[in-house]
């Protein structure tokens, strides 16, 4: 008898506790920054596309839902000619983000991607590219890689000496 009353009392007290239920969709849940949700392609601090079309994300993808074609623009920068993610296949494992050597592909804390038609879940580059540096502000791949692009010649990258004069014999 006592235990019954005690249980009812405890449950009654719960009425005054902080509520864990979110009234979604009116009320949004706060998601941590490292939440693995919608995939986006981010940009360099200078506004250029970060993705260099190295295919590592596609290779890392366990469901093979990323396909792209890399190409090069006139300034010598590589970029994806097209970049397609089939979100109807994606399992949001984040392997692509881990594999990305340029911090281009990032998983964002956003999961609201539902569509009535599966075909709508195929995202092209226009849908994926965002105007932000995402979780890694300040990083610029071409500033550390030895590849020369327009405006950054050989020897201009971080920790690089000026190009060797091959005609010199000086030590």
């Amino acid at each position: 008898m006592f235990s019954l009353v005690r249980s009812m009392w405890l449950i009654f007290l719960h009425m005054f506790h902080k509520r864990e239920t979110y009234q979604y969709p009116e009320q949004k849940a706060p998601l941590p920054a490292r939440w693995r949700g919608r995939i986006a392609l981010t940009r360099d601090p200078d506004g250029g596309e970060r993705c260099v079309g190295c295919y590592l994300c596609a290779a890392a993808c366990p469901v093979d839902c990323i396909s792209l074609q890399s190409t090069e623009d006139e300034s010598g920068r590589r970029y994806p000619e097209f970049f397609r993610i089939n979100f109807s296949r994606c399992i949001f494992c984040g392997f692509c983000e881990e594999a990305c050597p340029t911090y281009a592909i990032q998983l964002l804390p956003d999961f609201e991607m539902a569509e009535y038609s599966r075909q709508q879940l195929v995202y092209e580059k226009e849908d994926l590219l965002i105007n932000s540096e995402g979780k890694y502000p300040g990083y610029n791949y071409y500033k550390v890689a030895g590849m020369a692009i327009q405006g950054k010649d050989k020897g201009d990258a971080k920790n690089e000496e000026p190009p060797v004069d091959v005609k010199s014999l000086l030590p």
């Binding site: 993808c61 397609r84 599966r118 195929v122």
Partner: peptide
């Protein structure tokens, strides 16, 4: 390690 099997033709038809 062939990639993109489920995305290569998804622009035409997701199936």
């Amino acid at each position: 390690r062939y990639s993109g099997r489920t995305a290569m033709l998804a622009n035409k038809n997701v199936s």
